[in-house]
């Protein structure tokens, strides 16, 4: 993550890191997650799903902070985030 100056408590605060998963077949391409992601970590992809919509994809691997906004705002229950560490433990 980039800062315009190093925060004073940078050593104490740990920025959470998440991974976003998209269930592509359920997406109806509304773009809510893309528009309102606070980190602008998503974009509509060029690929088509089975319904003919463009499901979202992550722009970079490091941007997601696991805030869960996309998971809550998605009207199709098609996107969710998991904390990165959690995934590694399970994997």
């Amino acid at each position: 993550m980039k800062f315009w100056r190093t925060p004073l408590d940078a050593d104490k605060i740990k920025v959470p890191h998440g991974e976003t998963y998209v269930i592509k077949e359920r997406c109806k391409g509304c773009g809510f997650c893309v528009e309102f992601c606070p980190k602008r970590a998503l974009r509509l992809s060029d690929e088509f799903n089975i319904k003919g919509y463009h499901p979202p994809e992550m722009i970079g691997k490091d941007e997601c902070v696991n805030c869960g906004l996309c998971e809550m705002i998605c009207p199709e229950f098609a996107i969710y985030c998991l904390e990165e560490e959690e995934v590694q433990v399970e994997g």
């Binding site: 269930i23 077949e25 359920r26 809510f32 998971e71 009207p75 229950f77």
Partner: peptide
């Protein structure tokens, strides 16, 4: 999806239009 235990997944996808707010 973490909401799966609370939803009847056999009925999903739902009938609401794209960009409808009811799903939210």
């Amino acid at each position: 999806h973490p909401m799966t235990p609370l939803l009847r997944m056999d009925r999903i996808p739902h009938i609401w239009c794209p960009t409808c707010g009811i799903g939210t």
